[in-house]
């Protein structure tokens, strides 16, 4: 049986179910008892304050504390409220979290899940709006996933909590606040990391999108269909590991590739995919890879400037046309 729930409810259900299933799972972070955006709302009523732990405002230190609890065999789910705030925890995230298992020769594992909300469009200004996924892809030993539907959100978060490796789950604020709804089964399920999904099949151009940008890509595909261009839209779902097979199969068919992310262009996810494509199947490409991403500027407080900053359906349409 499945029913329709919101993105935020899916995340909430994933945490509640895993906390019921495993007494070692607990939630910690700033204001998680009240929950600023609602993902952890109500958990404290069922699981009590000990397992829904409000922390001081100290991102690097609470990340370290969650790591310590995880290396002692618990399975914390840490919330770093805004992705911008992960930059305060970069020491733990990039120097320690993903490297601990290797440096200790496998003596210690860190089964830690970190949830963080990204994205602009909420008129929150420069330091509460960024998508900084590409800052984290350089760190070894981490998994990074970004769901775009309630079904994926629940399945990926549950898989993250059960994983013995550290996983960062990126949650787009537009999906949380936008009240995006979708079908989610009542039965227990998880989704594997590293599996992209084709949201729309097409034969002319491959558009590989991350998170919320999948919806913009689908909008672009619809607009382009009216011009007779048949776009295939891939929702990557998992940034590390990346589903290279699905990307390859699609480009083998279309010969054209456009990447779409909300983060900035320089050294971004699109740059990684473009390098992969040119290094591994250059001969399949009929046109240069196009990257759709945010420009290398801060996010302004002005709604007009914020809208100009963001990649959208129209910028994707233009990028697709450049490949034709």
């Amino acid at each position: 049986m499945s029913r329709t729930i919101t993105f935020s409810q899916a995340l909430n259900e994933a945490m509640a179910e895993e906390m019921r299933r495993d007494p070692g799972v607990f939630v910690m972070g700033e204001d998680v008892r009240v929950s600023a955006f609602g993902q952890t709302a109500g958990l404290v009523d069922e699981f009590g304050e000990e397992r829904v732990l409000n922390t001081p405002i100290a991102e690097n230190a609470i990340t370290g504390a969650a790591m310590g609890a995880a290396m002692s065999g618990l399975r914390p789910v840490l919330e770093l409220m805004f992705m911008d705030f992960t930059m305060l925890a970069m020491d733990q995230l990039c120097n320690n979290l993903g490297q601990w298992r290797y440096i200790t020769g496998g003596q210690y594992t860190i089964p830690l899940t970190i949830r963080t909300a990204c994205g602009a469009g909420m008129r929150m200004g420069y330091g509460h709006s960024q998508c900084l996924q590409s800052q984290l892809i350089q760190a070894p030993g981490l998994m990074i996933v970004e769901p775009s539907t309630p079904y994926d959100a629940k399945g990926l978060l549950k898989a993250a909590i059960r994983s013995d490796d550290p996983v960062i789950v990126v949650e787009s604020k537009k999906l949380i606040f936008g009240g995006v709804e979708g079908e989610v089964p009542e039965e227990d399920y998880t989704l594997p990391f590293g599996e992209a999904v084709v949201r729309k099949e097409g034969k002319d151009v491959t558009v590989a999108a991350v998170g919320f940008m999948t919806y913009e890509a689908l909008g672009a595909a619809q607009a382009l269909a009216e011009e007779g261009v048949d776009v295939e839209v891939i929702d990557l779902r998992s940034i590390v590991p990346m589903d290279k097979e699905t990307l390859f199969a699609s480009v083998e068919k279309t010969g054209r590739l456009v990447t779409v992310e909300e983060g900035r262009i320089r050294g971004g996810i699109g740059a990684e995919i473009a390098a992969l494509a040119s290094g591994e199947y250059f001969s399949l490409l009929k046109a240069p890879v196009q990257r759709v991403a945010a420009p290398m500027v801060p996010i302004a407080g002005s709604p007009a400037l914020e809208d100009l900053y963001l990649p959208n359906k129209d910028t994707i349409v233009r990028a697709v046309r450049r490949t034709l």
Binding site: N60, A65, G68, A69, N95, Y108
Partner: peptide, 23 residues
Amino acid sequence: PGLVATLGSDFSIAVGTALASKM
């Protein structure tokens, strides 16, 4: 559990192992 390279990173990690012992 290990020795960090960035001095003081483990201040909070040690708090985490103590938290786990208590929990």
